[in-house]
Design a protein around this nucleic acid. Sequence first.
DNA 1: ATTTTAATGCAACTAAGTTGCAATTGCAAG
DNA 2: CTTGCAATTGCAACTTAGTTGCATTAAAAT
Lengths: 160, 160
Amino acid sequence: MILKNLKSKGYRLTNARKIIINLLLIAGQPVDVFELNRLLIKKGMIVNKTTVYREINTLVKERIVKEIQFKDGKMRYEIQLKDNHHHHAVCQMCNKITPVVSSALEKTVNQLEENIIKENEFHIIEHSLEFIGICNKCEPSRAESTGLPDIKRRNPVPTS
Amino acid sequence: MILKNLKSKGYRLTNARKIIINLLLIAGQPVDVFELNRLLIKKGMIVNKTTVYREINTLVKERIVKEIQFKDGKMRYEIQLKDNHHHHAVCQMCNKITPVVSSALEKTVNQLEENIIKENEFHIIEHSLEFIGICNKCEPSRAESTGLPDIKRRNPVPTS
DNA sequence: ATTTTAATGCAACTAAGTTGCAATTGCAAG
DNA sequence: CTTGCAATTGCAACTTAGTTGCATTAAAAT
Ligand SMILES: [Mn+2]
Ligand SMILES: [Mn+2]
Ligand SMILES: [Zn+2]
Ligand SMILES: [Zn+2]
């Protein structure tokens, strides 16, 4: 188990650590630190943001958590379960996240990675693939707009 | 041309705009705002950072420039040329960027996108695919380390 | 040359994430 | 159960990318 593994490496099983891991397991999808904090408070536990950042970075370092960057300027974190490699489709309007799994795709990507390693002399460790779009719930409101949806980004394009 | 297109839409062909577009064309790879500013200064032109951000967001809005997020907390921008869709391999250590092109991959991705649209009822606008690894120049120094390379991220994992 | 409005510079601001350090706590050993 | 030590935590101050309001400047159409 995750906790066993951590303890064996000299990490302590602190309250914050256990709850954060649990919340990430329950979430089952990428969450940002703000959201994680909200979940912690809901569980009746207030953890300083510094601690949250440090804890998450520890989990990233131990390859228990994976970082994902969308385009809204905040890192998101998702627990890494065995044989659960997947990607995401993100709604530009409401940020809804849908997992995307495709063995055909992974096969093609792996093939490509091998080619890159051979041809470009570049050792590839991982890849990051995200799909950006509009979820079916947000689709209706998009029709009325200019076609370019309101992107939830940190640096929003000013509405002309 | 790009400038013609912009003028026809009511944008003015200012000095800053013309130089920024030119620098992005010359760069031919994703650059962040800090780097862009350095290039502007080298061209003998000092442009206020607010202007640079605003200009780039205008170009993004007009689909002339594409935003790319690696994991170092800064957005990068790359000019969008016709029929030049591609991805990137990024060195975790020196940030060297290598373009990745594969028609086989795009075909698989397009197929997958169609499936997502049908099955998940999610309208997909674009995808973002980046490969993370170690370039051949940085490879030697990696061998001596723990295996986990020093990642150039904003929130660096503390070296245990 | 005049006018109109897009673009610019500036300074102050926001928000994500980091750091140094002192106080706390997990936990192993006795 | 107590003690000791290193890992963890909280706090406050800091850094950095990016944003905003407003007064000023400058494309460019007439
Ligand atoms: Mn996921
Ligand atoms: Mn490129
Ligand atoms: Zn949505
Ligand atoms: Zn490198």
